[in-house]
Structures are given as structure tokens and as C-alpha cells.
Design a protein around this nucleic acid. Structure first.
Length: 257
DNA sequence: GCGACAG
DNA sequence: ATCTTGTCGC
């Protein structure tokens, strides 16, 4: 996906106030600044979530597991120097082999506030996605989608901005509750916010702590779980997450030192 | 008011 | 997320 297409997508999505003219190239990575009109305080960030949440698409099953491309995205921080590095790693969904990699480095755009994680991660993640030549296919990110206080976590936010199918796979249950799923790989249970199922606790390896899957955009929950399972043949976390995590850390090392 | 709280 | 040694095990 080229950067111009990404910006077009942003405009078509009615979020044209998000400009990425700060994006430029330098020494093999993309250096991105925070968009001038990016929310600067929690109040405006929550207002933007409330505005964008209505655009989440939940009535599509999403691409079938095991075919096409699947892209993992992740970020690493150097809070001392106010630097963030993002990575996007495209895998062949059938073989889990790496098809393409891209990174971007930028300034931290927002502090970490539970419920507002997307504002911290998304600008640099978009820059990394914009560097990809291949279409990302299904995107898998760290954190939650609809499992969120206002039903608009990182995965949903990224999906609405790009129009891509996105799933969220988190390592912790956040504020939600769940019954312990069965002990075998593939066993799952509901992730609950009160009585509402907002995601699933999914066991990806026998006898290992589950991961927490939720819908981001244009995928069903059951399909999101099926993808997560296929992407996790040997470890607790999906290969997309593992690859993106390793790459963004490397990009941060090379950008910082 | 206090604690908890994706990454 | 990040700070961090050793250690158990394949």
C-alpha cells in the first residue's frame, strides 16, 4: 500500500482532518511527526473515539484463515528520548513465511492512558503500513478492538482509519473478566464486560496462559480466533506479533543506539 | 476519593 | 511498554 493511497483512504473515511504531510524519508526508515491536529488531551481523544466508533464494521466475516496475506504490527518505545518505532511484517498466511517488512520511527504522540492506547501507537503504525508495497491483507495488532471501555480500542481504530480487516490479540485481560478456558490448544471462553461478550480468551498452546482476542474491524469474532490459532502453531503469541515485536525493537535500537 | 487499568 | 541476572530446559 502506497502512502498516497493511505491518505486517500483517510480522506474517504471522513477523517480528512488527519494529515500525514509530516511523513518523510531518511536513511532507510520513515521518520514521521505527529499530525498537527492529532488530539493533545484526553478529553478530545475520547471525543474522537466516540465520533469514529460508529464507523466500525462488524457484519463481515473477514478473509478465510490460511489464505492470502496477514500483517503483524507492533511498536517499541524509548520514553527517555521520546522516540517510538513501529514495524509491519507481512506473512504468507498459508506458510507463515515473511513476505515483506517495513518500519517507521517517530516522536511519541500521546502518553499512555488506559483506554487511549491508539493515540500513542497509530501515527507511527500508519507510517510503517504506508511503506509496504504489498497490500497488508488482514492486520493483527497488540491490544484490543471492541474489548474496550467505549468499544473502540486500537484494533478497531486502526481498522476504521485504513478500512482494512483488523483483529486485536492482547496478552492481558485488561479490565474484563473470563472463565478459565479448557487446558488444550484451541479451547476458549468468553471475555466479558459485565454480561456482554467483548472478546474471547483463547488457549493457543496446551497448558499455557490464554491470549485475549477481540474484533477490530471487518472480521467476526470466531474468524478472528481461527486466524489467531493458525498464526500460533508453536508459541503462545501469533507469529505476526512475534515478528513485528522483534522488528520494531531492532528498528528502535538502530534509530536510538 | 481510591485503586485498577491494552501497550 | 520498560527496567534487568540468573536459571531451568529442550
Amino acid at each position: 500500500m502506497r502512502l498516497e493511497q493511505l491518505v486517500d483512504a483517510l480522506d474517504r473515511g471522513g477523517v480528512g482532518q488527519l494529515k500525514y504531510e509530516h511523513v518523510c524519508k531518511a536513511i532507510g526508515v520513515t521518520i514521521t511527526g505527529t499530525p498537527a491536529d492529532w488530539p493533545r488531551d484526553e478529553e478530545r481523544a475520547r471525543a474522537l473515539q466516540d465520533e469514529l466508533r460508529t464507523r466500525v464494521v462488524v457484519d463481515e466475516p473477514g478473509p478465510p484463515p490460511g489464505s492470502g496475506l496477514v500483517t503483524g504490527v507492533d511498536v517499541a518505545y524509548d520514553d527517555e528520548r521520546d522516540v517510538v518505532a513501529a514495524a509491519a511484517v507481512v506473512l504468507d498466511a498459508a506458510t507463515l513465511e515473511v513476505v515483506e517488512e517495513a518500519t517507521a520511527v517517530g516522536r511519541v504522540a500521546f502518553p499512555y492512558v488506559p483506554g487511549l492506547l491508539a493515540f500513542r501507537e497509530i501515527p507511527t503504525v500508519l507510517a510503517a503500513l504506508g511503506e509496504l508495497t504489498s497490500g497488508p491483507g488482514l492486520v493483527v495488532c497488540d491490544g484490543y478492538g471492541l474489548a474496550h471501555p467505549r468499544r473502540f480500542g486500537l484494533a478497531a481504530h486502526l481498522g476504521v482509519l485504513t478500512g482494512l480487516p483488523v483483529v486485536g490479540v492482547a496478552k492481558n485481560p485488561f479490565t474484563f473478566t473470563y472463565e478459565q478456558p479448557g487446558p488444550r490448544r484451541g479451547d476458549s471462553s468468553s471475555l466479558l464486560d459485565g454480561g456482554e461478550e467483548v472478546g474471547r480468551a483463547l488457549r493457543t498452546q496446551d497448558g499455557v496462559k490464554p491470549v485475549f482476542v477481540s474484533v477490530g474491524h471487518r472480521v467476526s469474532l470466531s474468524n478472528a480466533c481461527a486466524h489467531t490459532l493458525r498464526l500460533s502453531p508453536g508459541f503462545r503469541l501469533p507469529e505476526t506479533t512475534r515478528r513485528a515485536d522483534a522488528l520494531c525493537r531492532k528498528a528502535l535500537r538502530e534509530a536510538t543506539g
